[in-house]
Simulated scan of single mutants.
Amino acid sequence: MAKRTKKVFTMQVYPDQVAEYIRRHNPVWPEMATMLKEHGVHNYSMFLAEDGVTLFGYAEIESEEKWAAVADTDVCKKWWDSMAPLMRTNEDNSPESKDLREIFYLA
């Protein structure tokens, strides 16, 4: 198995949209899940912090290049458009996201 890199980030959901955000992820669109797997994304999880608005994302990725290419897919753009009313986004409807740097790991 190829070595995977961890991708960890935060995003912000609007407080009055948390329930809808959760509903739309259970389950995520099948075509979205397939596309992510095809782009080398594994073990992708989202968590909601106790503040009720901060989302914490974790994914294992095969490469930064494949991860970046997700944004160019039609299904991703459609997903972003559908999620934009629920969370803070950039002008292209991509979620505002802040990468987190790993500082400790215990295997």
Rank of each mutant, 00 (worst) to 15 (best):
E50Q: 15
A68E: 15
K98N: 07
N26K: 11
A84M: 03
E31L: 14
D51K: 15
E65D: 14
H42P: 06
W80K: 02
F9C: 06
K7R: 14
T5D: 05
Y58G: 00
M11N: 05
T54P: 03
M1W: 10
A33T: 15
L86N: 07
K77W: 07
A49S: 12
R4V: 08
A69G: 06
R4T: 06
A71E: 11
E20P: 02
D99Y: 02
N43D: 11
G52F: 12
N93F: 06
F104D: 03
L106P: 02
E50K: 15
W80L: 02
A71M: 14
L86P: 01
K78A: 09
A68M: 13
M35C: 11
M1Y: 11
D74S: 07
A49D: 15
T5N: 02
P27N: 12
A49E: 14
H25N: 13
A71G: 07
E91S: 15
F56Y: 10
L106W: 07
Q12R: 08
A49R: 15
L100T: 01
L100Q: 03
A69T: 05
I61R: 01
H39P: 01
P15H: 07
Y21T: 09
W29L: 08
W80F: 14
V13D: 00
N90A: 12
A69E: 08
K77S: 00
H39W: 04
I22P: 08
V70F: 04
A33G: 12
M83G: 00
Q12K: 09
A107K: 11
T89I: 15
K78H: 05
R101Y: 04
P30K: 10
F56S: 01
H25A: 08
I103D: 06
M83I: 03
T5I: 05
V41L: 04
T54A: 08
D51H: 14
K7T: 00
E65R: 13
Y14L: 13
V13M: 04
K98M: 10
M87F: 08
R24L: 05
D81V: 02
V41D: 01
E50P: 13
F104M: 10
A69R: 07
F47D: 09
L48H: 03
G40C: 08
E20R: 09
K3C: 06
S63H: 09
S97F: 03
T10R: 03
L100F: 04
H42Q: 15
V18T: 08
A19R: 06
D92T: 12
V18R: 01
Y14R: 12
C76Q: 02
A71Y: 04
I61D: 00
M35A: 12
V8H: 04
